[in-house]
Write a protein that binds this DNA or RNA. Structure first.
Lengths: 92, 92
DNA sequence: TACTTTTGGACATTAAATGTCAAGTCAAAT
DNA sequence: ATTTGACTTGACATTTAATGTCCAAAAGTA
């Protein structure tokens, strides 16, 4: 997104208030951004916040079970659990 | 599982090599065990290791996105990513 | 009551992630 | 060839979060 807008690391980093070295690493997936940083990035580029957050959190989830044999099954079970939680969120 | 076998915290904790206060908390979901502890627990009770690991990791995944609006969508996207990773694991 | 088991909470320890800085690489420009 | 600007790399510092420990309080039981 930054390159598409012909912006410099320095420029984006300044506005988003991230060290430019860190931003560089985030761009190349060497570091994970924080949730707040993701929000600021979304805002800065006029992107939908939720869209980026989904991308962000899904990356974190994948990272959590990277190189685990049971990764996929765990993910499927987790999804069911989330569904269950959402279902019972209201009525106590 | 411990109570079904009429065992005391002390007894299980000793074999598994966990502080019994910690084990108590793990039982009541106040603390997360480590992966190794899960393995030892499975072994101790003669349970299938993968089964417990799946339960363990799915809990961790859920925990990661607890009280996030986008939790479910993130989980679904994560699952797709895992599928993609598994698919391309061999070739290249 | 006396004894045992379990739990609660404060604190210590460890581990992992984020943040920072300075030096390094590379390409373009002159 | 040297300088300049953009980006990257790596070591290190800082922060954050989770795990582990200890001991006292609570709850249960004879």
């Amino acid at each position: 997104m930054r390159e598409q807008n012909s912006l410099l690391l320095r420029q984006v980093a300044a506005v988003i208030e991230i060290d430019q070295a860190l931003l560089s690493k985030i761009e190349r997936n060497e570091r994970m951004p924080t949730k707040d940083q993701v929000k600021r990035i979304a805002k800065f580029f006029g992107k939908d916040e939720n869209e980026l957050l989904i991308s962000f959190f899904s990356d974190k989830l994948v990272y959590e079970v990277r190189d685990e044999e049971v990764a996929l099954k765990a993910m499927q079970v987790a999804e069911k659990k989330i569904n269950y939680i959402i279902k019972n969120k209201n009525g106590k």
